[in-house]
Computed example of a mutant assay.
Amino acid sequence: MKTSIYGAALAVLISSPVLAGDLVAPVTEQPVIAAEQPVFQTWTGGYIGGNISYGFGSLDANDDLASLLTTNGFSDNLSEPNGVSGALRAGYDWQFGRGLFGLGAEYNFGSYDGDGEGILAGSGVDVEIQDMATIFARGGYLVKDNFLAYGLLGYSQAEGEVSLGGDRDSEDLDGVTIGFGGEYMFTENWTGYAEYSYTDFGDVDNTDGQLEANLQQIKFGVNYRF
């Protein structure tokens, strides 16, 4: 009796898949590795920084004076002040998804100088645009998490000075500034940017609308964000 029971048990074991040669490997569950998520940089916060700029402006005759000059074969351009200058900048940005809105201010502590042009060529006249201050709003889009493309709209004031020999005359200049640029985030705290801006000062004060001025600037700068 026992022999038959043992024999039956042995037959069952021998015929089972594990001992019969038809082995089935146990299924091992592989650990699920989550895809690495990109780190989304945040641009919300304040910043302070500075830039180096190349500026090129124009002082032009306007209205009756421009007509008089062109009638007599002269250009209405009287000077083209230009040069390299530096500025300090500070502001605050708010990020909304991939959009950005910011407010800022900039003070350019240098000047752009130019000799007389056209009818003033060789006269010894020197023209300067200096001490320019700008407040601005900007809006942008994060093309990448660490790269912002933006446009800006602002209001600027500067001092325009004309000198001849020992005589100097200065007038306030003010007008609308528009521009566009790109800003790249190198680290959590440091960014670098390149920017172009155009300022239309319009009519120069106390010239009865006979003179007008403008200024273009190309800027390269860095910001410390906190």
Rank of each mutant, 00 (worst) to 15 (best):
T134D: 02
E128H: 00
V32S: 08
M185I: 05
V84C: 09
G73S: 11
S15R: 12
I119S: 08
L88H: 04
S75R: 09
V162C: 10
F201W: 00
A137L: 11
L211D: 02
E106R: 07
L153D: 05
E117C: 02
L88D: 03
L153C: 00
Q157W: 14
S75Q: 07
A213I: 07
D126W: 02
D22M: 13
Y107D: 02
T187V: 06
Y198V: 08
G139H: 02
G83F: 06
Y92H: 15
K219P: 00
R89G: 01
R168H: 06
N214E: 14
G73N: 08
D93A: 11
T28S: 06
I135L: 07
I48A: 15
L13K: 13
K2G: 05
D131C: 03
I52Q: 11
Q41D: 15
L152P: 02
I14W: 09
A61L: 00
L65A: 13
S67K: 15
L142Q: 08
D169R: 14
I129D: 05
L153E: 06
L215E: 00
Y54R: 04
Q217V: 10
A25C: 13
P38R: 15
F40V: 14
G57M: 07
V143Y: 12
L100A: 09
S197M: 09
P38C: 10
L153Q: 02
T191R: 05
V125L: 12
E128N: 12
W94T: 12
E117Q: 14
G124S: 05
G45H: 14
E29S: 05
L164K: 00
F40E: 12
L65I: 05
T207H: 12
S67H: 14
Y107K: 05
S75V: 05
D208C: 01
R168D: 06
G192K: 01
F40H: 09
G165R: 05
S85M: 04
Q210W: 10
N214T: 13
N108D: 15
L120E: 08
S58M: 01
L65R: 07
I135C: 05
P26M: 12
T3A: 15
V176T: 15
V204Q: 03
E159G: 09
D167I: 14
A34W: 04
A9Q: 10
D172W: 03
L173W: 00
S58L: 07
S53M: 12
F136N: 02
V39H: 10
D208H: 08
Y47K: 01
G116T: 11
V12A: 09
E29H: 07
